[in-house]
């Protein structure tokens, strides 16, 4: 045993062990220092970024509120750099974003969200809780015209979609979905089944459907067509025109937007 120890080349014994640990300590310290430097740089960059944003928001808050095109661009920019202007607005501290923009953007979307909810609620008896985003936009604009509003009357569909999105944390049950080529807001917790969606899409394309149109074009039998139509009727998703040669089924959610 003793012989063995003596034969160990110097530098590879216990001393080496301590020396190694000294190295690794140095590495660690160096790493720490690098990390710290990075953090400092990052925080400098962040504060520069924040300052720039603050400056930007101060200069443009008005535009953000009043100009829908500008607002959409701004929101797109936020998405591009990975910031959601509405994300943390529900926590009490108030979001970084709210501080930056003096809550004007948040307020804008929440106020709009309230109006979207009102439109959906008011028209629910008529349309069964499904309404086209374009229709919501039209109705909100008409309200503004009625009260002679000048202020925030310019609302885009993009704004409405974001406003609905901002309701999500509240568990509002408002969802956006695509029906054919239209974006719809659903304010009732009901899902359309496949047959119902098919019929609604057909109405969107054709304006209305009849029993025989559905049977001829989809190859459905009488009972299947009857079931779908009855369900849609009882949910107020379609209205019936009994004064045509054959009963026609129209969707109130597409009123005023037939050509869009």
């Amino acid at each position: 045993m003793e012989l063995g120890l003596r034969n160990v080349p110097s530098g590879a014994g216990l001393g080496a062990l301590t020396r190694n640990s000294k190295f690794s300590q140095q590495y660690a310290t160096h790493g720490e220092r690098l990390k710290q430097t990075h953090a400092e740089q990052l925080s400098t960059q962040l504060s520069v970024f924040q300052a720039a944003l603050l400056e930007f928001s101060r200069t443009h808050a008005k535009d953000i509120r009043s100009n829908p095109a500008f607002r959409a661009e701004f929101a797109r920019m936020c998405t591009a750099i990975g910031v959601d202007p509405l994300a943390s607005s529900s926590n009490k501290k108030g979001s970084f974003w709210a501080e930056m923009l003096g809550t004007s953007v948040n307020d804008f979307y929440f106020e709009l969200a309230v109006r979207v909810v009102e439109v959906c609620r008011r028209t629910r008896e008529e349309n069964g809780g499904l309404i086209a985003v374009a229709e919501v936009k039209d109705r909100i604009q008409k309200q503004d015209e009625k009260i002679g509003g000048t202020g925030t009357s310019d609302v885009s569909e993009d704004d409405i979609l974001r406003a609905v999105e901002s309701l999500k944390p509240l568990g509002s049950g408002f969802t956006v979905f695509e029906l054919g080529r239209r974006q719809m807001i659903r304010s009732v917790p009901k899902e359309l089944n496949t047959d119902q969606s098919t019929v609604m899409e057909a109405i969107q394309v054709l304006g209305f459907v009849t029993h025989s149109m559905l049977r001829a074009n989809l190859g459905w039998d009488r009972a299947r067509v009857q079931t779908v139509i009855d369900d849609l009727l009882s949910d107020s998703l379609v209205w019936v025109d009994a004064q045509a040669e054959e009963k026609e089924y129209w969707a109130p959610m597409f009123i005023g937007n037939a050509n869009k």
Binding site: L233, S236, W239, Q243, W250, P252
Partner: peptide, 10 residues
């Protein structure tokens, strides 16, 4: 909207 002129069934 044509169905406006037909009384809704429900």
């Amino acid at each position: 909207f044509p169905p406006f002129f037909t009384r809704y069934p429900n």
